[in-house]
Design a protein around this nucleic acid. Structure first.
Lengths: 136, 136
DNA sequence: CGGAATCCAAAGGGATACTG
DNA sequence: CAGTATCCCTTTGGATTCCG
């Protein structure tokens, strides 16, 4: 049956990739960092704990769904901790764990590389686009 | 017209994010590195140029479409260069540019951080999952 | 050999409405 | 306030086919 075979092959490929990700720490870390809002949340929390609504305001453009999802993932990964104060209304604070703080210097390194080299990338892109545009 | 307004709002959000990405080098860099196959291609090319088919074999699990797309993007970003030898059949080699080579140490830094700390992340995940599972 | 073009399924993610 | 649940559009990416 062609359909089933194709689906199975797809599943195999997916698992091959997952297996790779599972054994490759760098890949796992990149997956975490590149989560659309994770690095933003991480740097937002760099200077102290914040409430959910404060985070939502600082990370302009994030939807409530994605903010919650991002924070959950980061909590699960041990990068942030979540503290509920059972007042009325409830108050929830997020703060970096030591592990999360440990990640900040790496983000800094990424930022530094980017600040130094991204204009070269920009220039390369423009040059590339000019080349392509001038080709019929 | 509700439909049009919703679509416009969505478009605005998208552009807000794009505007942010455009002004944030770190975010741009993370977008590049986290491209599912970019870091793999980068490290595959670390020790010298490779042909298209060689890359395809080294990066097991990548589809031809994604490999091509990744290489195009990296070429546009000035990270790799593409050389066509017009023989029959054609031969195409990819190699890192100086800019691309310059990125390798950063990948190394990411790899080192991951190797040192990802087991903490693993442990945090298991602890988190145990906590959640034991809650009805 | 090294692609480009097309098609389609699956995942991602925003909007909205509801809850403790 | 800080979420959860649902709906549904958009994007991603694999499979397949065709080309120089």
């Amino acid at each position: 049956m062609a359909t089933r075979t194709a689906a199975e092959r797809r599943e195999e490929e997916r698992q091959r990739y997952n297996a790779y990700v599972a054994t490759c720490p760098s890949r796992k870390l990149l997956d975490t960092l590149s989560d659309k809002w994770a690095s933003l949340a991480l740097t937002a929390l760099a200077h102290g704990p914040l409430r959910y609504s404060e985070l939502a305001r600082m990370i302009a453009g994030v939807s409530q769904k994605m903010l919650t999802q991002t924070l959950r993932t980061m909590e699960r990964d041990g990068l942030v901790s979540r503290t509920v104060t059972p007042s009325v209304p409830v108050r929830v604070d997020y703060r970096l764990t030591p592990l999360g703080e440990n990640l900040l210097p790496l983000l800094e390194a990424i930022k530094r590389w980017a600040e130094v080299h991204m204009e070269d990338v920009e220039a390369a892109r423009e040059a590339y686009d000019r080349r392509v545009d001038s080709q019929p």
